[in-house]
Amino acid sequence: MEVRTIKVFTTVDNINLHTQVVDMSMTYGQQFGPTYLDGADVTKIKPHNSHEGKTFYVLPNDDTLRVEAFEYYHTTDPSFLGRYMSALNHTKKWKYPQVNGLTSIKWADNNCYLATALLTLQQIELKFNPPALQDAYYRARAGEAANFCALILAYCNKTVGELGDVRETMSYLFQHANLDSCKRVLNVVCKTCGQQQTTLKGVEAVMYMGTLSYEQFKKGVQIPCTCGKQATKYLVQQESPFVMMSAPPAQYELKHGTFTCASEYTGNYQCGHYKHITSKETLYCIDGALLTKSSEYKGPITDVFYKENSYTTTIK
């Protein structure tokens, strides 16, 4: 009895394709271990004539594949690729409408935090270190965002349907971005203890939790000093293409032309909904596939993004 075979390709990165001759009487799992086709788990399936010449994702289970996976995804987590594939199996079914010149995501599976993050990423200057993220990001900007969303979920250790947080998501993504040249110098002034300067680099240099107003941050924000008295913390120097200011959701007025974009969060910790506000020729609110415009805006804002380049204080 002759062994019926077909020729397929296996890959971990969709760049390096490895030619395989597979036995049609055995499952993919018996031949390769966990195997995925377009995100779908085909591990328990036997090869079919229609699979001839198709590319299958496999887990990096030998040295060659491990090197290829690390170079593309910059992670050695053995569960990463499987999590990416199972997320992709959902995100490829989502709709990605162009809204006001940006790629958004039609609401499904509690994905409003991903839509808000995706919209924000198209408006701030950011370059990702893992080629996987950078490639998928370019495709997302062009309207094909399924891979990018699935990668975000995998890097953030999230599953489809789980509630997510924009600030946490951005923080994970910033860790995989090139923020080497970003720098922030802060000064804390206390009447009792004097003053202390701190220099922050990388992710810490672009994120701040405690106030939404970048102007206020430049002037000074009140913080408790270690001595128990009130101290003032203010920005001395900022070198970065953008800054992200966050605070627990509270009524906040966004003035046209003073910011790049913002995240609105309605609801409580267990259950809520994100919308995205962007400042173009007027203010726009993007909620999944829905767009509304207004000249002014007041609502429960939790993150505001500002364009920056270089700032030095005039406070002496």
Rank of each mutant, 00 (worst) to 15 (best):
R4T: 12
R4A: 13
I6S: 07
T10Y: 14
T10Q: 13
I15N: 08
N16E: 07
H18T: 08
T19W: 15
T19F: 08
Q20L: 09
V22G: 09
S25R: 13
M26R: 07
T27E: 10
G29E: 10
Q31R: 13
Q31M: 13
L37R: 13
D41P: 14
V42E: 06
K44L: 12
I45Q: 14
P47L: 04
H48T: 10
H48C: 11
H51D: 14
T55W: 07
Y57Q: 08
N61H: 10
N61M: 13
D62Q: 08
D63H: 08
D63G: 15
D63M: 10
R66F: 13
R66I: 12
V67C: 15
V67R: 13
E68Y: 05
A69I: 11
F70I: 09
E71R: 10
H74Y: 06
T75Y: 06
T76D: 12
D77W: 01
F80Y: 04
F80T: 04
G82D: 14
G82W: 12
G82M: 13
R83D: 05
Y84Q: 00
L88N: 02
N89L: 12
N89A: 14
H90M: 12
T91S: 05
W94A: 00
K95C: 15
K95N: 07
Y96T: 05
Q98L: 14
N100D: 12
N100E: 14
G101L: 04
I105G: 06
K106A: 15
K106S: 09
A108S: 07
A108P: 05
Y113D: 03
L114I: 09
L114Q: 04
A115F: 04
T116C: 13
A117V: 12
A117E: 04
T120V: 13
Q122M: 05
I124C: 05
E125R: 07
K127I: 09
K127V: 10
F128R: 04
Y137I: 11
Y137T: 02
R139L: 11
A140M: 13
R141K: 15
R141P: 04
G143D: 03
G143R: 03
A145Q: 02
A146P: 05
A146C: 08
N147S: 12
L151F: 02
L153M: 11
A154C: 06
C156R: 05
N157F: 06
G161T: 04
E162Y: 03
E162D: 12
D165R: 00
R167S: 04
E168Q: 12
E168A: 11
T169S: 05
S171Y: 12
S171Q: 09
Y172S: 12
L173H: 02
L173M: 15
L173A: 03
F174R: 00
Q175W: 06
L179D: 03
S181D: 14
C182F: 06
R184N: 04
L186Q: 14
V189C: 13
K191C: 10
C193S: 03
G194Q: 02
Q195D: 15
Q196G: 06
Q196V: 10
Q197F: 09
T199Y: 08
T199S: 10
K201F: 12
K201M: 11
V203H: 13
V203I: 08
E204Q: 14
V206W: 01
Y208D: 05
G210A: 01
T211Q: 07
Y214F: 13
Q216T: 08
F217I: 15
K219T: 12
G220A: 06
G220N: 01
V221Q: 07
V221C: 07
A231V: 03
T232K: 10
T232V: 14
K233W: 08
Y234W: 09
Y234K: 10
L235N: 01
L235R: 02
V236K: 06
V236S: 06
Q238D: 02
E239V: 12
V243H: 01
V243T: 01
M244V: 00
M244G: 01
M245R: 01
A247V: 04
A250S: 11
Y252L: 08
Y252K: 05
E253L: 09
E253H: 14
L254M: 06
H256E: 14
G257C: 06
G257R: 06
T258R: 09
F259L: 01
A262I: 00
S263V: 08
E264D: 06
Y265D: 02
T266C: 07
Y269P: 15
Q270E: 10
Q270P: 06
C271R: 12
E281A: 05
T282D: 12
D287Q: 01
A289V: 14
K293R: 10
K293Q: 15
S294I: 15
S294W: 10
S295E: 08
S295A: 14
Y297I: 07
K298V: 14
K298Y: 15
T302H: 00
D303N: 04
Y306G: 02
K307L: 12
Y311F: 15
T312A: 10
T314R: 14
I315E: 10
I315N: 15
I315R: 15
